[in-house]
Nucleic acid binder design. Sequence first.
DNA 1: GTGAAAGCGCTAACAT
DNA 2: ATGTTAGCGCTTTCAC
Lengths: 335, 335
Amino acid sequence: MVDQKKNATIYDVAEKVGVSLATVSRVVNGNNNVRASTREKVLQAIDDLGYQPNAVARGLASKKTTTIGVVMPDVTNVFYSELARGVDDVAQMYQYDALLTNTDDDQNRAVTAIKNLSTKQVDGIIYMGTKLSSQVLKAIEATNVPVVLAGSVAADEQLPSVNIDYVAAFEAVTTKLINHGHQKIALVLGSEDRAIDQSFRLVGYQQALAKAGLDYDKNLVFAKARTYATGQNQAAELVAQGVTAAVVYDDEVAVSILNYYQDHGYKVPEDLEIITSNNTNFSIVSRPELSSINQPKYDIGAVAMRLLTKLMNGEKLEESQIHLPYTLIKRGSTR
Amino acid sequence: MVDQKKNATIYDVAEKVGVSLATVSRVVNGNNNVRASTREKVLQAIDDLGYQPNAVARGLASKKTTTIGVVMPDVTNVFYSELARGVDDVAQMYQYDALLTNTDDDQNRAVTAIKNLSTKQVDGIIYMGTKLSSQVLKAIEATNVPVVLAGSVAADEQLPSVNIDYVAAFEAVTTKLINHGHQKIALVLGSEDRAIDQSFRLVGYQQALAKAGLDYDKNLVFAKARTYATGQNQAAELVAQGVTAAVVYDDEVAVSILNYYQDHGYKVPEDLEIITSNNTNFSIVSRPELSSINQPKYDIGAVAMRLLTKLMNGEKLEESQIHLPYTLIKRGSTR
DNA sequence: GTGAAAGCGCTAACAT
DNA sequence: ATGTTAGCGCTTTCAC
């Protein structure tokens, strides 16, 4: 008793109504060149037969799959999952589905993912990540489909992207700390080779220092932690360097550092002022709560997807490097 | 100067080598019925032309898309995103791609998502969620593709699923609290109508009470919080009821309650012992850290996907209701 | 307004 | 070992 009810095809519908495939296709696709009365009949038959167009066949014939690819480091990271949520919501709004791939920010996996998506004939790709190697760039070009970067920055802004102005944001928070009288301000980054860290966050930090007439000290820049666990070791290094303030690129790492200090008898913000950058729930869970740069994560994803829909429609972008506004949220971890 | 390099087709390759489509198809698909020498030539041509099989055409011809659908409440929720990561990792391992849809646990959206996935001819579906209405069940049946539930429970176990034994886990933690001498133990759930809450968590809680000879008090069961923010209000109710211990279904809500108590001058675990259930990073970020049921979230997703691959291969499952082991992690929020 | 027919790029018998 | 030939289910000219 296997359920063998084969899916009805457009042909079945056409036959039942006594019209041609073309007519059925027209009503399915909302083409107006169909007499109202026959449209009715077709619709009725579609309903009777439970006909659902086969998207694969459609994709083959029309060369549009109404599917996009999302290449991201890790769904498990709240920062990225919020971007993804923004992407998915507007994708659904425009009737696109999203094929999601985790790369752990590994460039080889990203290349594989992009090629694979290309194979599946996605109509466009949203790329998230902190790196963008030349191989990835090459893979992107090879796809021939529009790609927009979300929450990622290519050092050489050639691809459409949506972000906040990381340079300005990091300069702003660093300046705030400088104004509080700090001399040894740590900058905690995620890597020593990613554009977002080196060409943006670090630059903002350095600009603040320069404008205040402070020397840049390489020893105050850290880049060893990406998780709560490794944040503990990173924190120990900050203590060793005797920093009195810190700007941190990631919330989990920031909470880790905050906890480390307090667990070791230091007071926050008295002994350490700390500012984080993603304003995820981690920043309100800690005690004291963490001051943070507030990036419109969801919106970054949403706007990126919106751009992509335009690109997929063949529209030109008036503006392809979009900076969404960020804000600074003051909480207990700073004075 | 538009990049008009049309993608090479299998036909181009065949022509270049001077063989038929079929031969090319064979080497692409690893069919052994090809002389080594011609295989070489074909491979060479594929390389020269940069030929990549069109997965859509393939899907249409073979009726297999090597794509699965993942229907989940919200990627942004760490519990689900970890499940999704497990799913995606084994999916990649088996060369499947995942089409992801957020439903916010809305049954109508779930139905729409399932129908849509069906339209896209996915080979299988992983469903996550706390509810499973009859409409959703109906939509699932209608797809004719295998579906496995991950981290979800249908009250009437008819679909393959992988979970932990929620009843046992909740009974265990409740018993622990009872053994600490508590009389008023709160149970904080996410809903008053979901199977996972009512038919599993609540049942485990009640069993513990019953075995200890304690009366069940409906006023100690709460179900109003799903976020950190709403957790604050929920916490106020716990205080009002004068509970001295609590079992909480979600980490963010648990942290919220923990913080509320401490922010209002109560001591944890002295005035409130609290145990949470997902052991996400939220449980180690708080001070004190939260004792927790430890669910193998990633594994639940991974195993569910593994089951699905079997089902998609037409294999029978020896066991379709899988309970992965859980553990109890003791931290500072309990004595 | 509607139909006929040619593909889209591939797989899968079936021949040879 | 290799080729031929139908489709897969749909869109899309081009006629009428």
